[in-house]
Nucleic acid binder design. Structure first.
Lengths: 222, 222
DNA sequence: TGAAAAACTTGATAGGTATCAATTTTCTTT
DNA sequence: AAAGAAAATTGATACCTATCAAGTTTTTCA
């Protein structure tokens, strides 16, 4: 696999000259990870860049329950907060499938920022976006009804992928924690939406049939 | 009121030379706002700095329900995401009491960043902290039981203020939305905790009597 | 490929909490 | 200080969903 793949992939770096990208690439440690493998743990201080595959980022609550925070797709990264003094004591990263990733350690990354000031601006921009998503998730989790959260999630995905037919990147089990519910309830809610002809589904293949129906669910929760 | 109060208050700026702070201060528009007043709305592109008083930051869901995101205390700020390209289409700011605030508009702030590169680093640091809090809130809202969320919240506050006796900065109504519940349920939960002698309360005055009791609530939710 | 494990589904049940309504208390404003 | 408004409390009820259990399907891996 081409060795500069990480750096050239991420929006954080790919606006730089090819020459600079190569320099940065030498700082990155490349790694293939297999499905289910732990990629980072609380206490780690490194930037993780996703080259291919999806990485799930989740936290464990005191009582050991898992809460999925987000799925990082190729070109995304995670761990920048720890590089700026925030301490992570509960967030984990795990490979949802076989993946290629890169690491850049704290010192190297700090050096990079000094050398390439444009990076900080990019970081701030990407950060801003991430915060938005986190805020959305807060709004999201505060919806009482699972049906509402699921509908919101499904519509969000169509917005992102641009089609009404897509494959869920998550296991039902994981999607359930993301939606703040259980696999059992999620399964039932899917069934309900199918019976209302709002969507069709086969395993993780979902096709939205009635977008307005889903929207009605959301807004009908007065 | 001293005119440079905003700038000298915020961690974002107060590490700079007095001279520089004064320059920055000339860019800030100072304003007194009264309790309940709207401070910013979706679409605004300005940095809001809190000099005194507390500002609540909340969002409205499609169906008009309010979700409290955070309370910004003196020295804190809000709106930086919009200055970096993220569009805010649902977040509002409102004065919890009579307050003093400052605004810096988008262009001025961008100029500042170019002139004072140290600021971007500070911004990144503060951002990292904010992200942590948002992630905590996600974990928080995904706790099923209101009792658990309330206990977590109360313990968090003691950690922050350092004492077991404090005044809640929020109306019960607002605290309820923050905890993802209703005023009615919140009222009942408080009553339960009081009857268990975990705390005493008079209006917004809270005194934690049995910290371990509260901790047990959280970890007993297996 | 076939067995074992994991994931998903379906059913029944109990319990938590939102909701509605009514009352009391606190706060605001003149 | 009094009146009106807003907030908080209390009660009753219905419903949603977590939980437990069991069965089915899919995936994993030897």
């Amino acid at each position: 696999m081409s060795e500069h793949i990480c750096v050239s992939l991420v929006p954080l770096f790919n606006h730089l000259d090819m020459k600079d990208q190569k320099v940065i690439n030498t700082l990155a440690r490349h790694k293939d990870v297999t499905k289910g493998e732990r990629i980072f743990s609380p206490g780690d201080e490194k930037l993780v860049i996703v080259a291919s595959g999806n990485m799930k980022v989740y936290q464990l609550s005191v009582n050991g329950k898992e809460q999925l925070l987000r799925v990082v797709e190729p070109g995304g990264y995670e761990g920048e907060n720890q590089l700026f003094g925030a301490t992570n004591d509960s967030v984990f990263g795990e490979a949802l499938e076989n993946m290629e990733i890169c690491f850049i350690n704290k010192e190297d990354f700090r050096k990079l920022l000094l050398e390439y000031p444009q990076l900080t601006l990019k970081l701030l921009e990407i950060n801003a976006q991430k915060s938005l998503v986190l805020e959305q998730q807060a709004r999201f989790l505060s919806m009482e009804k699972v049906e509402e959260r699921l509908a919101t999630y499904l519509l969000d995905v169509t917005k992102v992928v641009g089609t009404t037919k897509y494959t869920l990147p998550l296991k039902m089990k994981e999607l359930a924690t993301f939606l703040g519910t259980t696999p059992e309830t999620l399964s039932r809610k899917f069934k309900q939406l199918e019976s209302k002809m709002y969507l069709r589904r086969q395993q993780k293949q979902v096709e939205i049939l009635d977008r307005e129906g889903l929207e009605r669910i959301i807004s009908n929760m007065r």
